[in-house]
Simulated assay, not measured.
Amino acid sequence: MSSRKFFVGGNFKMNGTIKSIKAIVENLNQSNLDQNVEVVVAPPSLYLLLVRDHLKPQIEVAAQNVYDQPDGAFTGEISAHQLSDSNITWTILGHSERRTLLGESDAVVSSKTKYSINQGLGVIWCCGETLEQRESNQTVAVVTGQLAALKEALGTDAAAWSKIVVAYEPIWAIGTGKVATTEQAQDVHAAIRGWLKENVSPAVAEATRILYGGSVNDKNCKDLAKQADIDGFLVGGASLKPAFVDIVNCHL
């Protein structure tokens, strides 16, 4: 058994209303969640304080993005300092929807990650490949290329890497209902851990939690969770539903 604490993140994306998010929070507050699992939820920025103020303290809250500059004249952005000031302890960075729809490059994602870590935030750092890249056997090259850009920003500093949770999300499986087989997911997770061992350090490779994301639900989570290098999930649509609790409790 790994000593890495299982981690389940819920990415609400651009979904929810005051009413629906209060209902999600109430359900989480009333549920008996596995105490051996670290749970973090990421509502839209408009509702960050609503969630933090009403959610039980055992569950942490993440932003879905953060800017890599101090407070200042950056209209529409949120700073790491403002998140910390609001007791928001995590942020998601590098999600494929921002990489592809908004054109965030590896360099931009790496800069945001380094800045967030330096400001004390934990980072759920996302990577993944397209269907075309998967079908042309480029998956590992794409994912390790994204990791290499991150290493260029962080170096081999174990303290910095300890603030990162890696989320492998095959782009072709996000919101499509498709999910990588347990073998496909495990193979990529093992490759990520192997890359970290060779390029950062064996200690960082052993300690880093690697999550699977991409149409995770209460039906497929148990089999995925049994894989040696899958240390949790980054859940999209299912995080808006009561079944999110079942995903958190997949080991019970």
Rank of each mutant, 00 (worst) to 15 (best):
D85R: 10
Q82G: 06
Q30V: 01
Q64W: 04
V25I: 14
I59Y: 03
I18S: 10
L50N: 04
L46V: 14
N87H: 14
N32P: 07
Q30L: 10
E77W: 03
L33E: 08
G72E: 06
N15W: 10
H95L: 12
L46Y: 13
A42F: 11
K22A: 08
L46S: 04
N36E: 14
D53C: 08
L83W: 03
S84Y: 09
Q58G: 05
N87A: 14
N32A: 15
G16T: 08
L55V: 11
L46W: 08
N36I: 11
L50C: 10
Y67Q: 00
G94C: 06
Y67H: 06
K19N: 11
Q64K: 00
W90V: 12
H95R: 06
Q58S: 15
E38V: 13
E26F: 12
Y67G: 00
L83S: 00
N32I: 15
L50I: 11
V41L: 02
R98F: 04
A73P: 01
D85A: 15
A80I: 04
I92L: 15
D71W: 07
N65P: 02
A62L: 09
A62I: 08
V40L: 02
E60N: 06
T100Y: 13
Q82A: 15
E97N: 04
Y47R: 10
T91W: 08
V51D: 04
V61M: 01
E38C: 10
I88F: 10
N15Q: 13
N36T: 13
A80H: 00
T89K: 08
P43G: 02
V37S: 10
D53S: 12
G76M: 14
N65T: 09
L33S: 05
T100S: 13
N65Y: 07
V41R: 00
V25C: 06
L28V: 01
G72F: 11
A63R: 06
D34K: 09
A42R: 03
P70K: 03
N87T: 05
I59P: 01
